[in-house]
């Protein structure tokens, strides 16, 4: 981990206002924010550890637990909501046996619900890693999940 952190720190000056971008890059590198990494970040940008923890828990995009290989983000924005996103949500949860923000036992998928992806024209929408899938219905969603079947590629942080 030390090496990964040093790679990130190399492109920063170690100033207070860099806290959020540093945490973002650390998460991109490691996949989540382990306690030890947050301590190191605190030392690097010279702010109390409590402040780092405060920031890391305030913003939704920071994760303190390891996550699955593929990140499913179901859009629960208004346009998706009125076009039936909750049905897709129910199906994903039963299909993968996960709760919101949960990770499947095999660490393959992490399931998140997000406010709006901004692709409302294609509602309901979800993204898996960096790919957007639109005009979903429960069956189409199931087929898409199946295409993420066997591979074990690393996903996005």
């Amino acid at each position: 981990m030390e090496e990964q952190l040093n790679t990130v720190f190399a492109s920063y000056k170690g100033e207070k206002n860099e806290l959020i971008p540093v945490l973002q890059d650390v998460q991109e590198e490691i996949g989540y924010l382990p306690e030890e990494a947050m301590r190191e970040v605190a030392r690097f940008v010279r702010v109390p550890e409590s402040k780092v923890f405060g920031v890391a828990t305030f913003y939704a995009r920071f994760h303190l637990q390891p996550r699955g290989n593929h990140i499913i983000r179901l859009c629960c924005g208004t346009a998706c909501h009125v076009r039936g996103a909750s049905k897709i949500a129910d199906r994903i949860k039963t299909e993968l046996d996960v709760e919101v923000n949960g990770t499947t036992e095999d660490m393959k998928f992490t399931y998140e619900e997000v406010a709006c992806i901004g692709a409302c024209g294609l509602a309901p929408v979800m993204t898996i890693d960096k790919t957007t899938f639109g005009k979903l219905d429960p069956d189409k969603m199931k087929k898409i999940l199946a295409t993420f079947g066997e591979d074990a590629e690393g996903g996005e942080a």
Partner: peptide, 10 residues
């Protein structure tokens, strides 16, 4: 642009 259902800024 955080409003769900808005994507003009994007």
């Amino acid at each position: 642009e955080g409003d769900p259902g808005a994507f003009m800024d994007r």
